[in-house]
Deep mutational scan, measured.
Amino acid sequence: TEIRININGVTIHVRDASEELKKLIEHLLRLGADEKEIREVLHRWEK
């Protein structure tokens, strides 16, 4: 699944996002995570 996240005008594009990762990101956004925090989570997730 491919997702695009727009945070304050900055688009983060994620290829091959699992449903689990998608739910995690949606949850973090609801909690008010910023772009830097989302990128950090994505970076750690890929490892």
Score class of each variant (00 low, 15 high):
residue 4 R to E: 13
residue 24 L to S: 05
residue 43 H to L: 15
residue 32 G to M: 03
residue 10 V to Y: 07
residue 34 D to G: 10
residue 19 E to Q: 10
residue 9 G to K: 03
residue 14 V to C: 07
residue 42 L to Q: 00
residue 43 H to F: 07
residue 8 N to F: 06
residue 12 I to P: 00
residue 26 E to N: 11
residue 32 G to W: 02
residue 35 E to M: 08
residue 13 H to F: 12
residue 34 D to H: 07
residue 1 T to N: 11
residue 21 L to S: 01
residue 18 S to K: 05
residue 3 I to K: 01
residue 29 L to H: 05
residue 12 I to T: 02
residue 16 D to A: 10
residue 7 I to C: 06
residue 42 L to T: 01
residue 25 I to C: 02
residue 15 R to L: 14
residue 46 E to D: 15
residue 24 L to A: 10
residue 6 N to R: 08
residue 28 L to A: 14
residue 14 V to F: 10
residue 10 V to T: 12
residue 1 T to H: 15
residue 31 L to S: 12
residue 33 A to L: 05
residue 1 T to D: 10
residue 45 W to I: 03
residue 30 R to N: 14
residue 45 W to Y: 08
residue 42 L to V: 14
residue 35 E to N: 03
residue 8 N to K: 07
residue 29 L to D: 02
residue 24 L to C: 07
residue 33 A to K: 06
residue 37 E to H: 10
residue 19 E to V: 11
residue 3 I to M: 08
residue 12 I to R: 00
residue 4 R to Y: 14
residue 34 D to A: 07
residue 43 H to C: 05
residue 25 I to V: 08
residue 29 L to C: 05
residue 33 A to Q: 04
residue 35 E to T: 05
residue 22 K to N: 06
residue 30 R to H: 13
residue 21 L to T: 01
residue 20 E to S: 08
residue 39 R to L: 09
residue 3 I to S: 01
residue 11 T to M: 12
residue 22 K to F: 15
residue 12 I to M: 04
residue 30 R to L: 13
residue 10 V to K: 07
residue 2 E to N: 10
residue 36 K to I: 09
residue 16 D to W: 07
residue 32 G to Q: 05
residue 8 N to G: 10
residue 2 E to S: 11
residue 41 V to W: 08
residue 22 K to T: 12
residue 46 E to F: 15
residue 27 H to L: 12
residue 7 I to N: 02
residue 22 K to E: 10
residue 1 T to Y: 14
residue 36 K to T: 12
residue 31 L to D: 12
residue 7 I to H: 03
residue 41 V to M: 11
residue 40 E to H: 05
residue 47 K to A: 15
residue 33 A to T: 10
residue 30 R to F: 13
residue 4 R to I: 14
residue 24 L to V: 13
residue 17 A to I: 07
residue 41 V to N: 04
residue 21 L to K: 01
residue 19 E to W: 14
residue 15 R to I: 09
residue 5 I to E: 02
residue 2 E to D: 11
residue 30 R to K: 13
residue 35 E to G: 05
residue 37 E to D: 08
residue 22 K to R: 11
residue 39 R to T: 06
residue 22 K to Q: 12
residue 8 N to Y: 03
residue 6 N to L: 11
residue 20 E to L: 08
residue 37 E to L: 13
residue 9 G to I: 02
residue 18 S to G: 07
residue 14 V to Q: 03
residue 11 T to H: 13
residue 41 V to G: 02
residue 38 I to F: 06
residue 29 L to G: 03
residue 24 L to F: 09
residue 15 R to Y: 12
residue 23 K to G: 11
residue 24 L to K: 07
residue 21 L to F: 05
residue 16 D to T: 07
residue 45 W to A: 02
residue 20 E to R: 05
residue 32 G to T: 02
residue 42 L to N: 00
residue 17 A to D: 04
residue 36 K to M: 11
residue 13 H to A: 11
residue 29 L to F: 09
residue 5 I to P: 01
residue 26 E to T: 11
residue 13 H to I: 14
residue 1 T to G: 09
residue 25 I to P: 00
residue 37 E to W: 13
residue 38 I to V: 06
residue 18 S to A: 07
residue 10 V to R: 02
residue 31 L to H: 12
residue 29 L to Y: 07
residue 13 H to Y: 11
residue 22 K to S: 09
residue 6 N to T: 13
residue 16 D to K: 10
residue 17 A to E: 04
residue 33 A to C: 06
residue 11 T to A: 08
residue 15 R to C: 03
residue 29 L to M: 10
residue 31 L to R: 15
residue 32 G to P: 03
residue 40 E to D: 09
residue 19 E to S: 12
residue 21 L to C: 03
residue 4 R to M: 11
residue 17 A to W: 08
residue 11 T to S: 09
residue 35 E to H: 08
residue 21 L to H: 01
residue 17 A to C: 08
residue 39 R to W: 05
residue 13 H to V: 14
residue 2 E to F: 06
residue 14 V to A: 02
residue 14 V to Y: 06
residue 33 A to N: 03
residue 12 I to E: 01
residue 47 K to C: 15
residue 43 H to V: 13
residue 14 V to S: 01
residue 26 E to V: 12
residue 28 L to Q: 05
residue 25 I to K: 00
residue 44 R to P: 01
residue 41 V to S: 07
residue 39 R to Y: 04
residue 16 D to C: 13
residue 32 G to N: 09
residue 20 E to C: 06
residue 15 R to S: 12
residue 45 W to P: 01
residue 22 K to C: 02
residue 28 L to P: 00
residue 34 D to Q: 09
residue 47 K to L: 15
residue 37 E to I: 12
residue 12 I to H: 03
residue 9 G to F: 07
residue 35 E to W: 06
residue 5 I to N: 01
residue 32 G to H: 05
residue 45 W to L: 03
residue 43 H to M: 12
residue 37 E to K: 13
residue 4 R to V: 15
residue 14 V to T: 02
residue 41 V to A: 14
residue 38 I to Y: 02
residue 12 I to Y: 04
residue 14 V to E: 01
residue 20 E to V: 09
residue 31 L to A: 10
residue 18 S to V: 06
residue 22 K to P: 02
residue 17 A to N: 05
residue 2 E to A: 08
residue 1 T to V: 14
residue 24 L to N: 06
residue 13 H to S: 10
residue 29 L to N: 03
residue 11 T to K: 06
residue 6 N to P: 06
residue 38 I to D: 00
residue 8 N to L: 06
residue 20 E to N: 09
residue 36 K to P: 07
residue 16 D to Y: 08
residue 1 T to Q: 12
residue 23 K to T: 14
residue 11 T to Q: 09
residue 6 N to I: 11
residue 45 W to H: 04
residue 7 I to M: 10
residue 36 K to W: 11
residue 20 E to P: 06
residue 12 I to N: 01
residue 27 H to Q: 11
residue 47 K to Y: 15
residue 4 R to A: 11
residue 5 I to L: 11
residue 8 N to T: 04
residue 22 K to G: 06
residue 17 A to Y: 08
residue 12 I to W: 02
residue 38 I to C: 02
residue 12 I to A: 02
residue 36 K to R: 11
residue 29 L to W: 08
residue 19 E to G: 07
residue 15 R to Q: 14
residue 17 A to F: 06
residue 24 L to W: 10
residue 9 G to D: 06
residue 25 I to T: 01
residue 6 N to Q: 13
residue 39 R to E: 04
residue 25 I to R: 00
residue 41 V to R: 03
residue 34 D to N: 09
residue 21 L to G: 01
residue 19 E to A: 13
residue 6 N to F: 14
residue 41 V to L: 10
residue 8 N to Q: 07
residue 4 R to Q: 14
residue 15 R to K: 14
residue 44 R to A: 15
residue 46 E to S: 04
residue 10 V to D: 05
residue 1 T to P: 05
residue 20 E to T: 09
residue 6 N to E: 14
residue 5 I to C: 04
residue 46 E to N: 12
residue 10 V to F: 06
residue 43 H to D: 15
residue 26 E to L: 12
residue 35 E to V: 09
residue 47 K to H: 15
residue 44 R to C: 15
residue 15 R to N: 10
residue 42 L to W: 02
residue 41 V to F: 15
residue 12 I to V: 07
residue 37 E to F: 14
residue 30 R to E: 11
residue 25 I to A: 01
residue 10 V to G: 06
residue 44 R to Q: 13
residue 39 R to V: 08
residue 38 I to H: 00
residue 3 I to R: 00
residue 20 E to A: 09
residue 22 K to Y: 13
residue 12 I to K: 00
residue 7 I to A: 05
residue 31 L to N: 14
residue 32 G to K: 04
residue 22 K to I: 14
residue 5 I to T: 01
residue 40 E to M: 05
residue 11 T to R: 04
residue 44 R to K: 14
residue 9 G to M: 03
residue 39 R to A: 05
residue 40 E to P: 00
residue 23 K to Y: 12
residue 36 K to Q: 13
residue 29 L to V: 13
residue 10 V to A: 09
residue 22 K to A: 12
residue 36 K to C: 03
residue 26 E to Y: 14
residue 3 I to T: 04
residue 8 N to V: 04
residue 23 K to H: 14
residue 14 V to L: 07
residue 36 K to A: 15
residue 45 W to V: 02
residue 19 E to M: 08
residue 23 K to E: 10
residue 42 L to Y: 02
residue 11 T to P: 04
residue 40 E to Q: 05
residue 45 W to N: 01
residue 43 H to W: 11
residue 35 E to F: 10
residue 25 I to Y: 01
residue 6 N to C: 07
residue 28 L to E: 03
residue 9 G to A: 04
residue 8 N to H: 08
residue 24 L to D: 04
residue 27 H to T: 15
residue 36 K to D: 13
residue 19 E to D: 11
residue 41 V to D: 00
residue 37 E to M: 12
residue 9 G to N: 08
residue 26 E to K: 13
residue 3 I to L: 15
residue 10 V to C: 06
residue 40 E to A: 06
residue 14 V to N: 01
residue 29 L to P: 00
residue 2 E to K: 03
residue 42 L to E: 00
residue 43 H to R: 13
residue 27 H to D: 12
residue 30 R to V: 12
residue 24 L to G: 02
residue 16 D to P: 08
residue 25 I to Q: 00
residue 21 L to Y: 02
residue 12 I to L: 08
residue 30 R to W: 13
residue 18 S to E: 05
residue 19 E to K: 08
residue 27 H to E: 13
residue 44 R to E: 15
residue 30 R to S: 14
residue 46 E to K: 03
residue 20 E to K: 09
residue 13 H to M: 10
residue 27 H to I: 13
residue 3 I to E: 03
residue 18 S to C: 01
residue 37 E to S: 07
residue 44 R to M: 08
residue 38 I to P: 00
residue 34 D to I: 05
residue 28 L to T: 04
residue 12 I to C: 01
residue 46 E to V: 06
residue 29 L to K: 03
residue 7 I to L: 10
residue 44 R to V: 10
residue 38 I to R: 00
residue 44 R to Y: 14
residue 34 D to W: 03
residue 19 E to I: 11
residue 32 G to I: 01
residue 40 E to R: 05
residue 27 H to C: 07
residue 21 L to Q: 03
residue 47 K to I: 15
residue 17 A to V: 08
residue 34 D to F: 04
residue 8 N to A: 08
residue 11 T to N: 10
residue 38 I to L: 08
residue 28 L to V: 08
residue 45 W to S: 01
residue 35 E to Q: 07
residue 15 R to T: 14
residue 18 S to D: 13
residue 29 L to T: 05
residue 40 E to T: 06
residue 23 K to S: 15
residue 30 R to C: 02
residue 47 K to V: 15
residue 5 I to S: 00
residue 18 S to T: 13
residue 7 I to W: 02
residue 1 T to R: 08
residue 25 I to N: 00
residue 26 E to D: 12
residue 16 D to H: 13
residue 6 N to S: 10
residue 13 H to Q: 11
residue 18 S to M: 04
residue 16 D to F: 07
residue 9 G to S: 04
residue 27 H to V: 11
residue 14 V to G: 01
residue 36 K to E: 11
residue 16 D to R: 07
residue 12 I to S: 02
residue 34 D to C: 03
residue 7 I to G: 02
residue 11 T to F: 10
residue 15 R to H: 14
residue 46 E to Q: 09
residue 7 I to Y: 04
residue 40 E to F: 04
residue 9 G to E: 06
residue 18 S to Y: 03
residue 2 E to G: 09
residue 42 L to D: 00
residue 14 V to R: 00
residue 32 G to D: 05
residue 31 L to M: 15
residue 16 D to L: 04
residue 2 E to P: 08
residue 31 L to P: 01
residue 39 R to M: 08
residue 18 S to N: 10
residue 32 G to S: 05
residue 26 E to R: 09
residue 19 E to F: 09
residue 19 E to R: 10
residue 32 G to F: 03
residue 37 E to N: 06
residue 6 N to V: 13
residue 19 E to L: 12
residue 31 L to C: 08
residue 21 L to M: 04
residue 18 S to F: 03
residue 9 G to W: 02
residue 23 K to V: 11
residue 11 T to D: 07
